[in-house]
Simulated assay, not measured.
Amino acid sequence: MISQSNNPPLLLRTRGMAAEVAARLRVMIDEGEMPPGARIDEKEMCMAFDVSKTPLREALKVLVSEGRVTHRQYIGYRVAAIDLGDLASTFEMLHGLEAMAGELLQQRVSVTQVAAIGAKHRRMVECHNSGKRLEYFQLNQQVHQMIVDAAGNPVLSNIYATLMSKVHRARGAANTDILRWSESMDEHDAILAALEDPAHTDLPRILREHSENTASEVLAVLNRARASAPAARDEGVKPEVSREPEEVVGFSQD
């Protein structure tokens, strides 16, 4: 009988490395460093993370179960496509939730909550001014959730968080090319000003318009990327046309 004491430590180390690799890949995918349809080169990933194929493949299995990665025989692992039709529908829901939060905030937001949102907003401004796009994007997400949470409706907060998690990767993919960064920052200034106004009368409109503008830009960027995907040629990880001529890996309109 094989001793149980010799195997668990090795297994735990492998699982620990797999979890760490999965976490790092998850961030790379969600923040747009690895775009939709990108081929995941196992050899390059093993070298980059200094791990063997075992923990890498365990990590990739986790990401496949999460829908962030796909695997096909003879093709290998790729970053999962973004369904543009589903994305547009999700954004439509978010517009309404943002406006609803604005209406509730008119009666419920406290001075303390406004101060906390304002402090996070100022950190976001600092990242914008210093060109730290990734940090700005992360703070942006946090500010939006704080605003919705301040509406004091847990059901609204949970639905919003769930839908935002669905568009997070799309926003990250578009974030690398987004053209309206300064415009978005101006809109956030307007949101904070409306929050700091005791009447809060403009909040529903401003929040909804900001959500609509963000959706419009993200969808435009991803549609441009989808249109150019067949011609894209990068070194290493890149979006490619699959073996089926009619299917472009990376984006879907279904």
Rank of each mutant, 00 (worst) to 15 (best):
M1Y: 07
Q4V: 11
N7V: 15
P9W: 10
L12S: 04
R15K: 14
M17T: 12
A18T: 00
A18V: 13
A18D: 04
A22T: 07
R24F: 14
I29D: 05
D30M: 04
D30A: 08
G32F: 04
P35C: 00
P36N: 14
G37T: 04
K43A: 15
E44G: 01
M45A: 12
F49H: 04
F49P: 02
D50N: 14
D50C: 04
A59L: 02
L60R: 03
S65C: 03
S65P: 01
R68D: 13
H71Q: 03
G76E: 12
V79I: 11
A80E: 05
L84N: 06
L87K: 05
L87V: 05
T90S: 09
E92P: 02
L94T: 05
G96F: 01
G96N: 03
E103C: 07
L105M: 11
L105D: 04
V109W: 07
V109C: 11
V111I: 03
Q113R: 06
A115H: 12
A115T: 04
G118N: 11
C127W: 03
C127V: 10
N129L: 06
N140G: 15
Q141N: 13
Q141F: 08
Q142W: 05
I147N: 00
V148L: 11
V148R: 04
G152V: 02
N153G: 02
S165H: 06
S165Y: 01
R171S: 09
T176V: 14
I178Y: 02
R180L: 08
W181T: 13
H188G: 01
A190M: 10
I191G: 08
A193R: 10
A194V: 04
L195P: 07
E196V: 02
A199I: 10
H200Y: 13
P204G: 07
I206S: 07
I206E: 08
R208I: 04
E209A: 06
E209H: 01
S211L: 01
E212C: 03
T214N: 12
E217V: 07
V221N: 04
N223Y: 09
N223V: 07
A225T: 10
S228V: 10
A229I: 11
A232F: 14
D234W: 13
G236R: 03
V237D: 15
V237M: 12
E240V: 14
E240Q: 15
V241W: 06
V241I: 13
E247Q: 05
V249Q: 13
F251W: 10
